[in-house]
C-alpha cells in the first residue's frame, strides 16, 4: 500500500507525521518511508538506520558534438524551452532550462546532440529492523525537482515488495512536485493546522487531491490553537478527520532536537494509533 503525506502549507507537520507513523507501523510490519521533499528533505534527521545503498541520480541532457553538425538549426527550432541556441557557428545548451524531452537530440539529422548524463541528486537507502528509509537530495542549483522525485519512486517500486507499506513524505505546495509524489498512491493524508494560513492552504491541497481523484483524509496538527474553521470545513465537505494532534510546546521542543514524539508523549501515540487504524481499514477495503 502506498500512502502520501502532504500539505499545501509548509511546516504543518508532514515530516513529524511521516516519521512517527512510519516508526510506529514498523513495530508490526515492513515499512519503507520515502522522503520525496527532495529540495529540503528532513525525514532523515529523525530516522536512524544503517546505510545500505547510495547512488547518484542523473537526468539526461543533450551535449553538442560539432564533428558532423551542419548548423541547420533544427535543434533550436524544436526546443520549446529555449534550452538550445544556435549562436554563430556554435550550438549552446542551457542545462538548467532543459526538460530532457530528447526532441533536439532525436530530430537532429546529424546526431550531433547525443544525450548525456547530468547529476541532479543523490539517493540513499537505510534500514533498521522493519523500517527502511529512502531519501533523495537535489543538487543545489538544479531547479527541477520532478525528475528526481520520479526516479526515487521508481527505485522504491523496484526494490520493495508489494506488501511493504510505503509512506511518501511529500513536498509542500500544490504544483508539479506534489502531483508527482501523490499521483500513484492509494491514499493521501493531508496534514494541516487550524490557523488561517493552514486552512487556506488546506483548501488548495484538497482541490489538488480531488483533481487527481484520490481518496484522502485530514490530520489536524496543533489542534486547539486558532479556530474551528478546519473542522467545520471538513464536516461540510464530508472529509474524514482521521487524527488530531494537540497543540503543545513539548511537541515543538522534542521535534527541535530531531527526536520522535510518540515514544515520549503518550497522547501522540494514541492519535497515531487512530491514524494507523484508519490506514489499516483502507488497506483492507482496497486489499493492497
Amino acid at each position: 500500500m502506498k500512502i502520501a503525506i502532504a500539505s499545501g502549507k509548509g511546516g504543518t507537520g508532514k515530516t513529524t507525521l511521516s516519521t512517527n507513523l512510519a516508526a510506529l507501523l514498523a513495530e508490526k510490519e515492513q515499512v519503507v518511508l520515502v522522503d520525496l521533499d527532495v529540495e529540503e528533505p528532513n525525514s532523515g534527521l529523525f530516522i536512524s538506520g544503517e546505510l545500505k545503498h547510495t547512488e547518484k541520480k542523473y537526468k539526461m541532457i543533450p551535449e553538442w558534438d560539432p564533428t558532423h553538425c551542419n548548423l541547420c538549426g533544427i535543434c533550436q527550432e524544436v526546443c520549446n524551452f529555449n534550452a538550445v541556441l544556435k549562436m554563430g557557428k556554435n550550438i549552446m545548451v542551457f542545462p538548467e532550462l532543459c526538460h530532457g524531452c530528447y526532441a533536439c537530440s532525436e530530430l537532429c539529422p546529424k546526431n550531433s546532440l547525443p544525450m548525456k548524463e547530468r547529476e541532479m541528486g543523490e539517493l540513499k537507502a537505510f534500514k533498521k529492523g522493519n523500517l527502511s528509509f529512502v531519501e533523495s537530495k537535489l543538487v543545489i542549483g538544479e531547479e527541477q525537482a520532478v525528475p528526481l522525485i520520479k526516479q526515487t519512486i521508481d527505485y522504491v517500486d523496484s526494490n520493495f515488495s508489494e506488501d511493504t507499506i510505503k509512506l511518501y513524505d511529500s513536498p509542500p505546495g500544490t504544483s508539479c512536485p506534489v502531483i508527482e509524489a501523490t499521483k500513484h498512491t492509494d491514499f493521501v493524508i493531508l496534514i494541516t493546522e487550524t490557523t488561517p494560513f493552514g486552512f487556506h492552504d488546506l483548501k488548495l491541497a484538497v482541490e489538488t487531491i480531488r483533481e487527481l481523484g484520490k481518496d484522502f483524509g485530514v490530520v489536524i496538527n496543533r489542534y486547539g490553537i486558532g479556530d474551528d474553521s478546519v473542522e467545520t470545513y471538513c464536516r461540510e465537505e464530508g472529509i474524514p478527520v482521521i487524527g488530531r494532534i494537540p497543540n503543545d510546546r513539548a511537541v515543538a521542543e522534542i521535534y527541535s532536537k530531531g527526536e520522535l514524539l510518540y515514544p515520549r508523549l503518550p497522547f501522540i501515540k494514541k492519535e497515531l494509533e487512530k491514524i494507523a487504524a484508519h490506514v489499516a481499514d483502507i488497506r483492507k477495503e482496497l486489499s493492497v
Binding site: G10, E39, E40, N42, L45, F46, L138, I140, E142, E143, Q144, A145, P171, P172, G173, P177, A252, Y255, S256, K257, G258
Partner: peptide
C-alpha cells in the same frame, strides 16, 4: 519555499535576503 525553480526566480535581482529560520534540526 525550497531550493528549486520558484525560489531561484524569487532570488534573482535581490539586493538583500532575509533568511527566517527556527532552532530545530
Amino acid at each position: 519555499p525550497g531550493v528549486g525553480c520558484p525560489v531561484v526566480s524569487s532570488l534573482s535581482g535581490a539586493t538583500f535576503v532575509v533568511l527566517v529560520t527556527e532552532p530545530t534540526v
